[in-house]
């Protein structure tokens, strides 16, 4: 859609205007790192952040979420939907791609209104990465170093102002209503183009092949010995799943009041790396070994999800690589598979 400009001097007013109508969340400093959190003042918003421990997914698929409340007497239940208007401010392009995938997952087949209603009430303001966040990201290989959809507004830092790409009519309305902005002049368009083309070489391709070849590579890698090798290393802690912006598997649990008369059914994030994930009542466990569970994780990212939704199941954010205590990384695994295949 269109391109607009916001002077940095107008940003504080933009955010405080938003706060009148929306819950605003965005990257904030947390110890020596950054984390998405509630923004109550523009100064808390750190648009210069590198990466966050958890992705912004937590505002659409919370770590713990009430699906419905119930009364045990008569089995009556009332679904709970979170439709509070919210703006997620400062989303990097890898995470924009991840949210785009989650939108497809929860809208495909039987619609999950808990996710979708929350999503419908949420606006995404993206921010362009101009330098790599750290040595773990590999967005360029995964095609997520830029995003052409999946946001309502998308900012690029031009020094004393932000270029704002308008992605949706809702984004356009947000801008018109809450931000002092102006149209982009020729020199501003030129400056934006320069920033975007100059950023490209700062990022490196970290996979030895194009990310789009992953489904084909996975198709020939099921029996690769690497899965056995990961068996000996993986601690089955599940951290890789918990920090991943595209992981969405969950467990469902009941929580009851002391008198057991009322309660709620909740869903909580789950991890396919945990031993219990695929165990059934008869005692059979369909992915008993860590090797099978690691293989499942990488096949979901590289093949099952792309086959089903037409988008890669990994956006190259590097969070799982940062979180893993034994240094199991998608780049390491996929390059090894590629090497084994081309050797």
């Amino acid at each position: 859609m269109s391109l607009r400009m916001i002077d940095k001097g107008s940003m504080a007013a933009f955010v405080s205007n938003l706060l009148q109508a929306y819950e605003v969340v965005g990257p904030r400093a947390k110890d020596s790192q950054y984390a998405f959190g509630r923004i109550t003042d523009y100064d808390q918003l750190r648009l210069d952040y590198n990466t966050t421990i958890l992705p912004p997914k937590k505002y659409l698929l919370p770590q713990e979420e009430v699906l419905f409340t119930f009364q045990t007497e008569g089995m009556s239940a009332a679904p709970v939907f979170d439709t509070r208007p919210r703006v997620i401010f400062g989303v990097h392009t890898c995470d924009i791609h991840a949210l785009h995938l989650l939108d497809a997952v929860f809208a495909t087949g039987q619609r999950d209104e808990h996710y979708l209603e929350r999503r419908a009430a949420t606006l995404i303001v993206g921010i362009e990465c101009l330098t790599p966040c750290d040595e773990h990201s590999f967005c360029k290989s995964m095609g997520t170093l830029s995003a052409s959809e999946g946001f309502d507004l998308h900012l690029t830092d031009l020094g004393d102002r932000y270029a704002v790409e308008v992605g949706t009519p809702a984004g356009e309305a947000l801008l018109a209503r809450y931000a002092a902005n102006h149209g982009a002049g020729e020199s501003e368009v030129g400056l934006l183009d320069k920033m975007l083309s100059e950023k490209w070489p700062r990022f490196s391709y970290r996979l030895d092949f194009d990310g789009n070849e992953l489904p084909a590579l996975m198709a020939v890698s099921y029996k690769n010995p690497i899965w056995k090798e990961l068996e000996g290393r993986c601690l089955a802690c599940g951290s890789c799943n918990l920090v991943c912006p595209t992981c969405y598997c969950f467990d469902v649990q009941d929580r009851v009041s002391m008198d057991r008369k009322t309660g709620e059914r909740i869903r909580v994030w789950d991890s396919c790396q945990l031993a219990e994930f695929a165990r059934v009542g008869s005692g059979e466990n369909f992915r008993k070994t860590r090797a099978e569970r690691q293989r499942h994780r990488f096949f979901r990212k590289g093949k099952y999800i792309p086959d089903m939704h037409g988008e890669l199941g990994c956006v190259g954010c590097g969070r799982c690589a940062r979180a893993c205590l034994v240094d199991i990384t998608p780049v390491g695994v996929w390059n090894a598979l590629h090497k084994a295949h081309t050797a």
Partner: peptide
């Protein structure tokens, strides 16, 4: 088709 627990490969 959401929670992932029942997956048999794909």
């Amino acid at each position: 088709g959401k929670c992932g627990h029942c997956q048999i490969n794909n």
